[in-house]
Design a binder for these strands. Structure first.
Lengths: 244, 244
DNA sequence: CGGATCTTTGATCACAGTCAAAAAGCGTGG
DNA sequence: CCACGCTTTTTGACTGTGATCAAAGATCCG
């Protein structure tokens, strides 16, 4: 990794400290599609994702799969289990792209938490933010249509990856994105169609959002947390705007 | 309150310590229907619910209300905001029944956290558990039908309130329960009908679950976290079984 | 070029939301 | 004890959305 210090997990820490923490784990490459851990397996290790992407999911007894979320570089995986009183993984994690992780035995990582209070605080902040996001997500599933959720997701992708909404490539396959949004591939495809009238044009993985503001009106006017939406805030701040 | 020590928040602490914590806040009675705090208001206070029930909810700009959850005695309200970096409440809270709360100014409460590490750990455990529950809930909304979610909720009510499934009274109005489950009153009513064929009989607020095990099969066979379901575990342990 | 996977399109269906109206509870006051 | 008005719950008819199944197009990669 070029810069560990850019990871939120290490914010407010010295380069020496973050390097020492990384050194306490084992680096490992994970080919695409490989599991990092499996639902129900004994809980031994938590992982810091340095590069790539990991999909976390769960299966019901009757065979349906639910995608819980997609983790990117800088995310800590199975972090909630540090404070949980469980002894097995509560879901599975698979590499969505070839990924690089650092594996920490959980007891070892707990020692690190004690030794580095800033690390513990960063993790708490991340967990809290994540809880926030999943609450927003749950609400979206109730109040928004599939097309609106898709639109929200497109905007979020732009801000998160610092992409230019006027022209960018989807960072994941459409079916992966669909499952992240909790919808079927067919619905995803049809929803994209609906957004065409709002100036969203798609060819393959290339996306063009003619008027991000129009999309925003289409979505955020129905969202109860629009006031505190980080995506919205950075859109307005021009974090991913093309026009200089 | 008869016994503070029975609250999960104070588990592992001396009676003197928990009394001292309580003494740091202001006790207050809240009549039914009154707001405890409102979405968007400046974040000043967190609350410990000693008795009664509080419904937490949010409104979308176009007027829909989403119930986030129902808190009972022993719950800490706005606790996530202790670790969040927000300065206003992210949702509203209203007394569902006449309730008794202890109000803590947030800076004061943070001091208490430092002074009583056990308190901080209990709160973390509660937050973690709550995150877990809301994840389960989100999944249920995707994978289960309204009738199945209702059945799950009935079983959970029995275990949580230590009620006898063969004969108990609903602790909240049907419309409140419906909104907790994220469904309309009409759907709730119709779903109750569907459960009749599984031995669930309702007259007014009196419920009779002839065969809890049958209900369990109806629900949990489709749930990906059935293995680790606390409701299920206590059902099997006979925590609320009538037969001695 | 050929085979595999991913995506789109079409047709159909089931579920829960909506609107409207009837029925059941419930507390109040005569 | 009953009649009254109010709220909550139930029932009915209808609608919209997204899931499902099936098949046709794209796209990718050897």
């Amino acid at each position: 990794m070029s810069s560990l210090s850019s990871l939120a997990l290490f914010s407010g820490m010295t380069a020496a400290d973050s390097a020492a923490i990384i050194a306490a784990g084992h680096r490992r490459m994970l080919p695409k599609g490989e599991p990092l851990f499996l639902h129900g397996a004994p809980l031994t290790t938590c992982y810091l994702l340095l590069d790539g992407a990991v999909r976390q999911c769960r299966q019901t007894p009757d065979g349906k799969e639910i995608t819980l979320g997609l983790a990117g570089a800088g995310n800590l995986l199975a972090a909630t289990h540090l404070f949980d009183a469980v002894d097995s993984y509560q879901w599975s994690a698979y590499a969505e792209k070839p990924s690089e992780v650092v594996a920490f035995p959980i007891p070892r990582f707990k020692q690190l938490l004690v030794a580095h209070p800033a690390l513990a605080l960063n993790i708490l902040a991340a967990l809290s933010q994540q809880a926030h996001l999943s609450a927003v997500d749950a609400e979206h599933r109730i109040t928004l249509s599939a097309a609106q959720r898709l639109a929200c997701s497109l905007l979020r992708i732009c801000t998160l990856h610092r992409l230019n909404p006027q022209h960018f490539a989807l960072p994941y396959s459409k079916s992966t994105l669909a499952s992240t949004l909790g919808m079927e591939g067919e619905t995803f495809s049809r929803s994209l169609k609906k957004l065409a009238s709002l100036g969203v044009h798609v060819r393959g993985s290339q996306v063009e959002i003619r008027d991000p503001h129009a999309l925003e009106c289409y979505v955020c006017g129905h969202c109860s947390i629009a006031d505190d939406c980080t995506t919205l805030a950075s859109l307005h701040a021009g974090a991913c705007s093309a026009k200089p």
